[in-house]
Design a protein around this nucleic acid. Structure first.
Lengths: 221, 221
DNA sequence: GGCTCCATCTGAACACTGTTCAGATGGAAT
DNA sequence: ATTCCATCTGAACAGTGTTCAGATGGAGCC
């Protein structure tokens, strides 16, 4: 009954791709394999995504949306102190990468359609969460351009979490922990220290208020 | 006369691979294309490298050797101040990535034979240059284990340069500079600031000496 | 109801990939 | 001069992404 007009094959293909990515990694991706898993002919995906790159781009877009959500949650869980919130974002960034290694690595490949509008929007949204955190910490209103110090802090924070995530996934830290099994423990212990050092080095401490009220002033939205 | 026994086909294949990587990137690598460029049958590489992964591993190993050299040079060019030397290494790391994007991206793929002895040695050697810089800055003798602060600084520095390099190559900073053409200028301007912030935040200032002698004391080798 | 339309999916084809393997080749050691 | 053997070929196989004419069947219209 549903050999044709599968329902939403589009969604099924995206899910199958994500599953394949999760268990075999992005290098082992195969369009035919995905079609096989969705129980469909190898030519079927072309009609929905045009290309293998099209399908991968859709999955990566979903990935960036997930990252955005994770960053927001990590930020919110960290309380009100702007620097703690930035650390919360950083931890969330790396945790996201460790929880979805295939997805994460896919998101920064050039096998994607880099000029796809949806992808650009999703990636930019994730980036804006970080920028928003920086604005808060530096007391810059949403419209204003960032001063040099803020740019530097933004780049430093983004680079450090991205590098940490990428190096961890590439197994480059494995000789430092207990060879890939204690990886999680190692990350939980060392990442926080790295983050606080970087944040303290490039983001100014919040202006002292009486420790009674938690509000941070009229600059914050 | 040289249809057979090419001389050193091994070397020719490595060079052809590197050239292909430079102009098309690692995602477009093809063993047959490399064989074609070396003027040889598609089965020839198998005898020297066994596998496509074997050839790529050899190229990546060469890449790590080059990175080691670049780090040493960048460190030496920065003078005697330990923190300046660390910044010099960081700049060299990112410049290496920008000069050899394909090579660099290949070096952190999992299409390699990660347990290859040569590769591990080469990668570890590059890492040790960075560790040596940290030892100098913290005044830790080569045999001694690193204290927690030094580990944190090492991870922070490595992560930040790696993340910066990777994000730049992925084009993730292009919206921030003049869309991919001013990339070089942007990097030269912002990287240094990022690096000094991170280094100053996680590496202690050298103990004050009279500004006459440049020697840094008996702790340094 | 019957009808047409059209997005959706198939099946076969094409060019390409990595890998394997029996055999040709020719330099080097005997 | 002859044997040996690392080196390389050519053909084969399975698997890949992509294209395209045609089958399928739901949705909308008369």
């Amino acid at each position: 009954m549903h050999a044709y007009h599968h329902g939403d094959l589009r969604h099924a293909l995206i899910e199958a791709t994500d599953a394949l990515l999760a268990e075999k990694g992005p290098e082992a991706f195969s369009l035919r394999e995905v079609a096989r898993r969705a129980g469909v002919s190898p030519a079927a995906p072309a009609h929905h995504f045009g290309d293998a790159a099209g399908l991968l781009t859709a999955v990566a877009t979903m990935g960036f949306d997930g990252l955005t959500e994770a960053l927001r949650a990590g930020q919110a869980r960290a309380g009100q102190d702007p620097r703690a919130r930035l650390c919360g974002q950083g931890v969330a960034y790396v945790r996201f990468a460790m929880r979805h290694p295939g997805r994460f690595r896919l998101m920064f490949r050039d096998a994607l359609r880099q000029n796809d509008a949806q992808l650009q929007r999703a990636a930019n949204t994730a980036f804006l969460v970080l920028e928003d955190g920086i604005r808060r910490a530096f007391g810059i209103a949403p419209g204003e351009p960032l001063p040099a110090d803020a740019w530097t802090a933004l780049l430093a924070l983004w680079s450090v979490v991205h590098g940490y995530a990428h190096l961890t996934l590439a197994g480059r830290f494995d000789p430092l922990c207990g060879d890939a099994s204690g990886r999680k423990r190692f990350v939980e212990r060392s990442l926080r220290e790295v983050l606080t050092k970087v944040v303290e080095g490039s983001v100014p401490a919040p202006r002292r208020r009486k420790p009674t009220s938690a509000r941070s002033g009229p600059a914050a939205r």
